[in-house]
Computed example of a mutant assay.
Amino acid sequence: MKTVKTIQDVCECIAGWRRDGLSIGFVPTMGYLHEGHQSLINRAAENDRIVLSIFVNPMQFGQNEDLASYPRDLERDSRLCEENGVDLIFYPEPEEMYGADFCSYVDMSVLTEELCGLSRPVHFRGVCTVVLKLFNIVTPDRAYFGEKDAQQLAIIKRMVKDLNINVEVIGCPIVREMDGLAKSSRNTYLNTEERKAALVLYGGIQIGKKLIKDGERDAVALIKEIKGYIEKEPLAKIDYLKAVDAMTMSQVEKLDRRVLVAMAVFIGKTRLIDNFTFDFEDETINYQKGNGPKD
């Protein structure tokens, strides 16, 4: 396994693999890797070579967000990558990705106007810009993203379609702790009391799934019940909790299509996200199973 910090080094390595006719899988991350990232790496093993990027992208953080405090540990991340068969880590500095005169951005409408896009206005501009740059640098055959960031996954798939980018974007199921909390690098921010309180997200999801199984088809009523449960936790403050069309991210009133129920909740100062989907065409809940509790 190699670790490189420059775009030129990545391109030279990729060019050699391409000359040998090898396929390339790509896992873009912000580092501080956990079992969720490991599941993406394992899925990427369907390719001949695996590239993983570690880049805490300043462009997708707004003012007063956790850019400076976001957890970083390259040595720890490198061990996990080597143990799981990653061939190349790309670990650039911000100056390598964005020159002093950088002025080109990727903006998207519609899909970015709800959920995280509404509460974090600059976020998806930064995500789309850096992901497009990484796709152009790595030129992967396939790229792997977690379904926990459901809106991000939908946006990247749409960007790839709209801009005719030659990469297959693959979503991978949420990986959870044994008690249900979705794996996240930000979980490290939680103290003992907050960690216990954070289970309210998974509890809300379980309530939503049961209501749908029992026949609830009114989105407003569904969200009201989940919201009431979460608000009973004193340490929880809801940023958003919505039922949206899983393709367009627009809010729905009736549960009559493929619906994403998504939430962002502050536990103390830590913002956590979670979600589930339900396809009302075949009436199947996507439980997004991984390492964790079985529904």
Rank of each mutant, 00 (worst) to 15 (best):
D9F: 07
C13W: 14
R18S: 08
S23Q: 07
I24G: 04
F26N: 04
V27G: 07
P28V: 05
P28E: 08
M30K: 12
G31T: 11
L33Y: 14
L33E: 14
E35I: 09
H37K: 14
L40W: 10
A44H: 13
L52Y: 05
F55V: 06
V56H: 12
Q60W: 13
F61W: 13
N64C: 06
E65H: 04
Y70I: 05
S78C: 05
C81E: 09
C81Q: 03
G85S: 07
V86P: 10
D87Y: 06
L88R: 11
P92R: 06
P94M: 03
E96V: 09
Y98Q: 02
G99F: 02
A100T: 07
S104M: 12
D107M: 10
V110P: 00
L111G: 02
L111C: 03
E113W: 00
E114M: 12
S119F: 15
S119G: 09
R120Q: 15
F124T: 08
F124W: 09
R125L: 14
G126H: 09
V127F: 11
C128S: 15
T129L: 09
V130Y: 10
V130R: 12
V131S: 10
T139K: 15
D141W: 00
F145K: 01
G146H: 03
E147A: 10
K148L: 05
L153C: 05
L153P: 05
L153W: 09
L153T: 05
I155G: 06
I155M: 05
K157A: 05
N164G: 01
E168V: 01
G171W: 00
C172K: 00
V175S: 10
R176A: 06
G180A: 12
L181P: 08
A182T: 03
N187D: 03
Y189D: 10
L190D: 03
E193W: 03
V200K: 11
V200G: 08
G203P: 12
Q206L: 15
K210Y: 02
E216F: 01
R217P: 01
I226Y: 02
I238M: 15
Y240M: 10
Y240S: 12
A243Q: 02
A246L: 01
M247T: 13
M249T: 04
M249Q: 14
Q251K: 13
Q251Y: 04
L255P: 00
D256N: 00
R258Q: 01
A262G: 08
A264Y: 01
F266G: 00
I267L: 04
R271Y: 09
L272H: 09
I273D: 14
D274W: 13
D274I: 09
F280I: 04
F280T: 01
I285L: 14
G292S: 04
P293A: 13
K294Y: 15
